[in-house]
Structure formats: structure tokens, C-alpha cells
Write a protein that binds this DNA or RNA. Sequence first.
DNA 1: CGGCAAACTGTACCTAGGTACGATGCCCAA
DNA 2: TTGGGCATCGTACCTAGGTACAGTTTGCCG
Lengths: 210, 210
Amino acid sequence: MRRLDLPTLHILSTDDAVFRRISALDAHRQTRRITDLSELARLADGSLLIFDTAHAQCPAWDDKRWRSWCDQLTVVVASSEPNDAEGILAMDVGAAGYCHIYANPATLRQVIEVVCSGELWVGRSLLTRLLRGVSGKLPAAPAARTHWRQQLTEREIEVAQLAAHGESNLVIAEQLGITERTVKAHLTTIFSKLGVTDRLQLALKVHGVK
Amino acid sequence: MRRLDLPTLHILSTDDAVFRRISALDAHRQTRRITDLSELARLADGSLLIFDTAHAQCPAWDDKRWRSWCDQLTVVVASSEPNDAEGILAMDVGAAGYCHIYANPATLRQVIEVVCSGELWVGRSLLTRLLRGVSGKLPAAPAARTHWRQQLTEREIEVAQLAAHGESNLVIAEQLGITERTVKAHLTTIFSKLGVTDRLQLALKVHGVK
DNA sequence: CGGCAAACTGTACCTAGGTACGATGCCCAA
DNA sequence: TTGGGCATCGTACCTAGGTACAGTTTGCCG
């Protein structure tokens, strides 16, 4: 478990209790408190920031600074009275997450993990509302299982899938319990069947890029 | 850490590799494989289920069974070729999550944790689309596009784009009127800036797969 | 039974891609 | 002026990936 390269957790809040709660979340992670907006510009790219909207300097949602912060940092907007409308605005300016600042520790930990891994986090209330919003107007076509599969055998599909996701031949071999040589054999026939030259072209085909 | 009361993880899939991958996620959690839809009705209320859409019996999204399964189970729909439209349909029938079945183990673990804690999980692609849908505006900013771009110089973006579309170093060189050596130089810095190891990983990042 | 496809493996080989050492000239801000 | 980022190029080197030319075993089908 790589614990040392966890990004520092920055907290912008005027509330002592908030700071204590959040810093107690993960003993292995460094936590730093921020009190003034001007400090944000000096944070290293990719830093993690929890932004408490209760902060006195919290700007309006159409303020341009939001975008620049969110561009260079991973920002979780946290409110003591969250609501869907504010959540949408927050995510809209580029936040990676929107949550209740007094959520239970397990949830907060989860939020941090999720955004650190590059995903986005919003609560179920907001998410269901978003889904309800679009579910009416859909091209009800469940995306036909594409043709590249049909040309391959079961085993070849497994190999193709793994290769298209960037796994090396060796990893694929271990994953499937076979030899690297056999993986190569499968790939050769896959390439020929699909008319591509290498695994990158395969990936583009599998992912519908080309 | 309460490890003993973790709900059993049920996997509906015909793919052996999928089963192995998922059961390897968490040694403390019991994993059970399901091969036939008829078994679903017999699962205990609140059970956790990962439903691989590649399964031969996978019903259409307007099938009533989806709702009844999702009502009594925590269902994560997993696709080997996820797309936003299918994701919306899946969440719409009541799924607690929608993800890539070949996502890396850390992500899968995260998905499971999130849905087990009662939240919903969808990938950033779908979520940003949902958010775009309600906010109306935002042409090409939503972080996914920008993120890798903004770390690169103009020239590097050109190279990255060509490489991510499967062009060889030589072709890129001719296209840009430079030497193959220079292309390599650009790629080396691109890889290091984006934290990837080769052009396939780059392609996956550029095309939003990983 | 014969034949054929699929899955699997071995050895040998070539090459594109990637890295490690360089190097040059340009531009711009401190 | 000097340092640093950017773009460009050279040579040498290593390796994963891909091919060629083998082979075995299994199971199915006419």
C-alpha cells in the first residue's frame, strides 16, 4: 500500500471542528489548513482541497476564480446545508465532488478516495435528480453489442479486452492462467481477424474510436 | 473495521476472467458466482450483485425484471463497453452503480464500497454528461477534455493527439515536419507529464477510457 | 474414422517504441 | 546577463510486441 504519496489534504474553513474532523479521517495523510483564499494560488498542481462554503470569503458561483482553482486542484465543495441546486453549480464550475461537510467520517473518506482516483462524487440525492432529469429524453437504443466481438472466439474476446485496456502480454497471461506465448498467438489471430496491425489499433477499435 | 458483516458479493457473468478478477478484489469478502438469471430471485434481500451485461441472458432495459431485482438487491451493472446512454438506462431501472467490468481493481473496490454504503456510483464521463445536461452550457470544458491537455504544451498536444490515434512515430514526424527523434523526445516528456508508460496508455487517457 | 477448428506451447527472429546519455538555438523573465 | 522552458536533433541501447515456423491436445461433426 503506497501511503507516502497520498496528496496532502487542504481544508479551507473557518470552523475549527471541521478541521479537526477532517484531519482525523486518515492518520497517514498530511492535512493542512487554509484560511485565506489568496493561499489557494500557491498550492501545487493536483493538490486536494476541501472548500467549506461557509467560509466568509466564499465567492459567488459565477466567479471566475472557481474555474481556475478547479483546473489546477482537485476541489471538493462541502456545505453545511447542501442542496441539489448548489451541488449542480459547484460541479458546474469544475468541482470534483460536492458533499455535506458534516457527513460521517466513512462517507467523507469515501469522497476523498473517489476524487483522488480521478472520479467525481455527488450524493445520491443529487445524482438521482440528475438521472430523472434526462431519463425522459433518451435514444432508447441500448447500444448494439458491437461487431468486433462476433468475429472472435470467447477466449479471443477475453484477450482482446485485456489488451485493449493496456495490459501487457505478461499480465494477460497471468490473468488467464496461460503462457505469454499463447497470448501472443491469440493476439496474432485477433489482429488478422479484425484487420488491425497492433494492440493500439485494437484498442481504438474496441473503444469505438476508429 | 467490521469485516465479518460484509455482504456477500454475487457476480452474474459468463466470463471466467471477470469472476476471478472480482473475487480477488477483497479477500475478506465472500464471493459467489451466478450463471443463470433464475437464481437472482432466491438471493437474500440487500445482497450485492454485479451484473455483467455481456451475459447471454441479459434482458432489455425495459424488462420489468430489472426493477424487481434492483428493488431487493444492490445491483451494480457492469459493461465491457460502457457508454453513457446505457449507463443512464441502467441507473434508471434502479441500479446502484454502473461501471466498466474491466476497470482496475482499485476502482472496482471503490464502486463496491460506495454502493454498499448506500450511495450511487457512476463514472465521471456519465456524471459530467448529466451535469452538462442540466446546466445547458459548457461546450468543451468539462475537465475530462482539459485535464490532460492543460499539462502539455501546444506542440506536445499535437503529438499526443496523433499518437493517441494510432499513428506511428514516423508518420507523426512527417505530419509535423520534424524528425522521428524529436517525436520520441516529445512523447517521452508527454508520458512523464501524464504519468503513463507508453502510447497505448496515452491513448486510453486521451480517449477517456482510463 | 478422418478432418478441422480451437486452445495451447516452444524457439527463433526482427523492429517499433522507449530510454539514456547527450547537443543546439530560441525566447523570455528575473 | 543568465537561467530555464521549449523545440529540435544525434547516437546508442534495450525490450515488449509481433511474426514465422513449428508442434500437441481436445472435442466436435459429417
